[in-house]
Structures are given as structure tokens and as C-alpha cells.
Design a protein around this nucleic acid. Sequence first.
DNA 1: ATCCTCCCCTAC
DNA 2: TAAGGTAGGGGAGGAT
Length: 906
Amino acid sequence: MRRNEDKFPDNGFEAWGGYMHAKISKLEEQFSARAGTEETLSNIFNGVSIYVNGFTVPSADELKVLMSKHGGVYHVYQRSDDYIIASNLPDTKVKNMNLAKVVKPQWIVESLAANRLLDYRDYLLYGTSRTQKQINFRKIIKENDSLANDIKFNDTKQEQDLSEIHKTINEPNTTTSDQKPSKERLDNATSLDCQEILKQNLGAVTKTAADPEFIAEFYKNSRLHHISQLGACFKQHINELRENSNFQFPAREQLKEIILASNNFKNLSQLKFEKNKIIMHIDMDCFFVSVGLRNRPDLKGKPVAVTHSKGGQGRSKRPGVDRDTEFNLYKQNKAKKLGITTGISHDEIKIENRVDDIDEEDSKYGSMSEIASCSYEARAKGLSNGMFMGSALRLCPDLQTIPYDFDGYKEVAYTLYNTIAQYSLDIEAVSCDEMYLDCTELLSDMNVNVQGFATILREEIKAKTGCPCSTGFGGNRLQARLATKKAKPDGQFFLTEDLVEDFMYDIKLRDLPGVGSQTAYKLESLGHITCGSLQTLTLASLKSHLGNKTGAQLFEQCRGRDPNPLTFHTVRKSVSAEVNYGIRFENNYQCLEFLKQLSAEVHSRMHQFKAMGKCITLKLMVRAKDAPVETAKFLGHGYCDVINKSVSLQTATNDLEVITKEVILLCKKQNIDPTEMRGIGIQVTKLDYVTSRPTVGAINKFLFNNKIPKAKIKSEIKAELVETDQRNNPTTPTKSKVSTSPKKSPIISIKSPTIRKRGRPSKSLRQPSNNLMNKFLQGQNVGRDVPYKDPMIRAVVKEEVERKVEQSQTPRGLLGLPWNKVRALLRAWLDSGETPLQCDVVMIIDYLQEMVINKNIEKLQVLMNFLRRTTRDTGSVAWLEVYNRISEEVQNAMVAVYGKKLYISN
DNA sequence: ATCCTCCCCTAC
DNA sequence: TAAGGTAGGGGAGGAT
């Protein structure tokens, strides 16, 4: 029995042990009861279980009946081995699901028609057909055509080449066992393409970054890449759920009913009203392992690790490898740094720790594959995530390894998030397997106590995903998180207010979020290991040792306090891609090609997030002077110097050519021998957001070709902001010329959702408070009788203004241009006869709304009249639509600002 | 004072 | 063999 349960003896929730099972079996009982009334007609679907996702034809109910009549199983909750029947899935779902078993309902229908179970793979919703592999094979050739300058394939030629390649591959004695295939083989190949294909299919050559397929291959296998991508993905998912939700949660009602219906559960009702906030932290237990064990129940209870390595001995030593020298460099560097400053890089400590774990002789040639996740049984033997397999095997010779299952992680994470989302959307996504939930409102609404809710939720998650999780509760995010740590594995813990002080006293500083090895080391050298001990330090002292912010944060944290609220909506601030593995160039050409590819990767991500950026940073890892050329870890980066160089553009861009050009320029400036490079990264910051395709619209072209002096724009924007700020601060006298109703002005910088639902600025303004704003604006007839006296609203206003000031440091779109210039631009745009682009329209709307907000009504009238006349003159329907939309949005802005539409005279 | 660049640190 | 990514917070120190 875990300690935390001892602290909370019988409060009835043990009875919940079977809650999910009860719920599921009840639903399934109903199903079989109903199904049982019909006789079984066939056994076509014997051994097949389905889960229906969304609207289908036949409907879920019909499918249910069909399954039961023909020997199959219908699940109300999705289980891991279910076929998922769906006719279409929303984009977000598609992104987050393992699509390998998402099947069209036709599969069922046609199987019935054929009176046998057809191959589901022919009915995959997003399927790659079974012949896909061959198609890909040809595609490689086509894609690489540009490289094969002189040789063009026609179809027949392709066939010949392919069969030749197959022949080559299949001849046993031609496969080389060396690191490289024999030179002659490559020279005999008919083209560069064939060489590539040969290399790939022989598997004899390991891909390095010089290979055009390397980035894709690397990312496909990189755990860190997946962790990072999934995390971002679920943050976005929550953003979207919140934007599209009506904040009704049917699961709550369901739960309430079950609670009411059952005597067993009555004592779960919340007896007292919890007046403080209750934050819940949910974290899956050793996530990767748990997901992997779903298919390997035989390994449950054993020490298990997820890794690329198969667990066998590492290969024999490669020539040139000198682990001692390399590890010593890390150690020396650490010592050197410690002598001069307390700062030590994360990486070195990480490596150093690993080195410490390794018995020199034993592990000199052990596998350097990293452990992504290990089970609690393995942890008991001293293993930890990130450890090398070599040292892990030494500590735990019977360690079982299982491979990665990235699709599985995604699927489970998706199920996890959607399960929680049935109860509340006050979720802060931390990563694919971890989140915070503000359940204050939820608990009082459902009239359930904390432990009861935790039990229900954990049961439900386990039932749906097959994976255990732990949850912690507390008055703030820090407490919730520490509670989870105590609860693990597969437990729950409520850190109540009265326990906090004692609880914090023994918490290790290293266990505080934000305190990593470096900070912990510094604190340790100050003589502090635990929170209790650190509480004796003064705020000033902490600040002087760790910096202002970090010091202040730690001061609060070691007392169990955490002023940071949950953030439900996230706005991305940078986009980057980096590869520090497999970087081995032979010449400048390969390096350049790689830079181009990596730029394309960043560009495509920017495109995906609709982001434009102003600042481009290139990060290079270069072999340090004394480091061995051959790294200890196969194709690793080894001991390196790191260089960061950035360039600030005048205008935000999402243009691939611009990015590539700047990146190459930055790289060339460093003048580094490409053969010494070990890692490359590209980051884009100072983001702006667009709604359009990255197509350069007419206005963008205009802006791009007519570079506006930075200083000028900056000063104009600053002036504008000062003005806005003043108007929005009730205590500051307003300077507006057209002040129709001064008391209403504070609300105006908040653009109503209808005004700001598109366009880049809306993104930055759409913050957690937006929901509040939404409700407020919808419920209150904005502009009539402005209730900004409400302190809550005022706080929101202030927040929005501050954010606006912060976001508007950079000029964007048309803002900052004089109105007559915009008029000229509009004319040129209309005259050009080009189809209006969404991004341009949004920019115009932004500009005009800005005029409304600035009460620049006269100039606005001129522009609107001009726009109306010229639109009429063009006689274009597309333009008429554009005009109508612009007009509508401007009117909306007027309602928000003045409380009424101002009709612009002709 | 405030901003910018180049780091470092942390988290998953 | 092996797949050492990525985003955000923050600090030091120089430029303005």
C-alpha cells in the first residue's frame, strides 16, 4: 500500500476500483442484450473488434447490430486492437492518430456482401495501398532526377533499372560487409539515382547528412524529435478544442447520474465547498514503456527499456574511436568551467554522469544507444532515462528492450487528451503524456471530491489506453506536480493546504521544476539540498547567486508557492529544426545541400503554423580542436564548440528562398571546414502570423519591394501605441480628437472576436482571456453601455493592451504606413486585376480597423469611399465581395468602438 | 534604462 | 552501430 493512500484512509473511493470496468461492461451488456435478440447470422467478423469514430454510413448503431449478427465485437470505448471505423476525421485527429487501422465502413458492408472478411487494408481511410512500397520506390528515382543531370528515365528504363537493382541486391556475394559498398559497384550503377537506391537497399552504407533522404530518416527515428513534435501538437490541439468548444461537458452529466444512481458512491460527494483553487497534474507512468507493454504483457513486471539498440553487444570498436579522450574532454571542460564560474553546460553533466556510471573496462565498447524510457523495475536497479545501453546492461543484465512505437504514443496521447477534454478544457498541455487541469470549477460542478474524481479519471484512462497514469492535486501547479511525483507509479495524491509546509521541507531542490543539474549543483555548493534548507536563504541572497528571476522563483518555490497560473492557450514564439546526429560532410557542396534541406524543413514548419519570422539563427556544432575525429557514439556529435549566429530582417518572411539565402550566408561567414561540422540548426524567431498561404500577395510584394526605413516605422508604431495605451488607461487623460464618448474608450483596443477572428494580430490577441472576452462581448452588447467599470474586465483590458504593446514592437502589414500611401497601394492593387488574396484583405481590414480605433474617421472615410468607388468601377464580383467584407469588418469595429455603426457619407 | 545578440538552462 | 530535438525562460554584456 502506498504512503499516500495511508494518509487518506477509507473515504470510499476504493469502491471505485471497478468503476470503469463497471461502466464499460454495463454498456457492453446493454449491447449484447440488444444484440442477443437477433440470431447470429454468420461468423464473418470473428475476432474482429471495431470502434466507430464520428458519423458513418451505416451509422454506429447499425454497425453495432451488424457486428453482433456476424460474430464481431463492437466497443463503446476504443481499445488498442480495435479497428477504427470512420468516414472522415477532423484534421487534428488525423494528425494525432495512428491511421494504420482506420478503416472505411465500406469494409464491413462489402465483407458482408462478399460473405467473407475482406482485407481491411484495401479500405484504409488514409491508407497507403498495399502496392505503395513499389510506388515509393519509383518516386525516389523521379525526385532525384534533378541530381542525375544527364540521365532521364522513361518508364521502360525505370523498370530495367529497378530489376537490375533487385538482381544486385539479391545476389548474395555482392553484398559488401564493409562500411562502404565497393567502389566498383557504385561506378557500375547507371546513374547517381541508382547509386542512392543501391546504397539504401544494400543497407551497407549508413546514411549521413550528405544523403538526401537523411533528414526524413533521422526524424523518423528520433525520439527527441517525436517528443517535441507531439508536445507542440497537443498544445495546438487544446488551443483548437478551446476555440471550437461550447464548453459543455456531457461526460460530467453522465458521471453525475452514475453517482446519484449508486449508493456506493454517495459518500464521494463533496462535503465542504473548496474555496481555493485545485490544480490537477496528470502524467502517464514511464510513457513509452507503458505503451510498448500493451502488446507485450509478458514483459510486465520486468525491467524493460525502450531503445533503438537490440540489447546485444555493441559492435566492435570502430577505428579512430577514443572514448577515453572524448570523455576526458567533457570532464576537463567541466572542471575548467567550475574553476572560473559556476556555470556548467547541461550536456557535459549529462555525459559526465553517464561516464560515471560506466566501469571503464566493461563498458568501453558497450552500446551507446540511449534509453528513452525504462520501467520502474529497471529504475529500481539504478537505470534512468537517457542512460546508455552499455551502462544500463551493466547495472541490469536481464534488461528487456522493446522498440519504439511512435504511432502508439500518438494514439495513446490522443486518447488521453480527449478523455480529459470530456470533463474540462481548462487544460494546460505540457507534453504528449502530461498536462495540468484546473479542476476547481469541475469539482464543485460535479459535486465530487478530489480523490473520487482522480480515481474515476485514472480508471477511465487506463481502460481506454491500457496505460497507467498518476495524478497529483494541489493549490497551485507546483504543488500538483510534486504531488504527482509522490503518487507515482500508478497512484494519486492530494497535497492539501495543511500538508504543504511539512511536505515541502524534505523536497529535494533538484526535484523542483526548473531546477536542473546545473542549478542543483550551484545550490549544493551553497550548502543546500532540500527546500527546507533553502528557506533559510534571503530573497536577496538567492537573487545574487542565481539572477533576479530565477532567484525570486526559487524563493517562492521552496515554500511551496507558485504564482504562475495555468496557460490554456499558447502562442508559438519560434520555429526551428536542428540535427546534431549524422552530420558528416565531405565537401562544401554536401554542406550547402543540407542547409537547403534544413531550411526547407523549417520553412515547411513555418508554413504549417502560418508563421512568418524576422530573425533567423544558425547554430553550428563544430568538432573541438582536441576532440577525436571519430566520435565515441556512432555518428554522434562528440565534443564540440557551439556557434550561434543570427540575422534580423527588416520584414518578417516565410519565403523559402529568403530563409535559405540567409542561412547559407550566415554559414559562409563562419568560414568553417565542412568536414568538422557535427551539428546544424536553424531557428526563426520574432514571429508574425498570417492567415494566407505563403504566397506573396500584392500588398506583400509592395511592402517587400519598398523597404520602409526601420526607424521611421518603429517611431510611428511607438507613437501609436502610446496613444492607444493612454486611451486605454482610464486614469490617463485621453487625447482623442473625435472623442464621442470618453468613458467608453477603454474598451476599444480590444477588438471584438468578430473583428479579429482572422489575421495575424488576432493570434497574438487570442489569449486565455479571449474566452472571457467572448462571453463578455456576446452577452453585453458591446459599445452600448460599456461596463468597463467591472474590475475583471478592466484587468482584461489592461492585459490586452500590454500584450498589444509587447506584440507590436515590430511593424507589420500596412500598419505604420500613411493613409495616402495605402490609398495609392489600393489603387495599384485594384488596377492590377489580380485576384484579391486573403492575406491582403486581412491586412487592409487590419489597417482600417486601426484607423477606427485611432478615431481617424476622416481619413477612414476617404479610404472607404475610394474603395467603394473603385470596386464599383472594376465591376468584379470578387472585388465586390472583398469590399463587402471589408465594409462589414469596419462596421464591426465601429460598433465595438463607438457603440454604433457610423455610416460613411458619400 | 532598454534592446539586441549570444549564449545557458530546463523540460519533455 | 544509431537516430544527441525543440521551445521557452532567462542572464551577461555590449550597443544605443
